[in-house]
Amino acid sequence: MPAANHWIVTGNFTDDGAVAWRRADGTWSRAIAEAGLLADEASAKAIAARAVAAEQREICDPYGIEVFAEGTTIDPLTARQRIRANGPTTPIRRPDSGISR
């Protein structure tokens, strides 16, 4: 594994289903850039496994993913996680979105 790859822990917020990223201090953020970097898969798995029970009210189905981190940016390695981090790539159709007429 190249040195710049790390692991982070993610899940979805129970209240609205939004994507959640676990900060280093154990709280949960909506921005992937705030995620706490972990050295390896085993650490991510252990934290996720603990969060399943201990943080179950706040977070649904936590799990670890591998990312590439450089400076202040964190980039996921798969299309799926990129879309989770950035939202739908297609227009979200709101009347005020400027798409509709």
């Binding site: 609205d16 289903g17 939004a18 179950q56 939202g87």
Partner: peptide, 28 residues
Amino acid sequence: RRLSGEITEEEFKPLRLQNGLYMQLHAY
């Protein structure tokens, strides 16, 4: 019961799925 933490996501899942409520990538 889910919002109070009385039941876990694992227990809630089959219940919400009986009622058309999914967890998708960014939201319910």
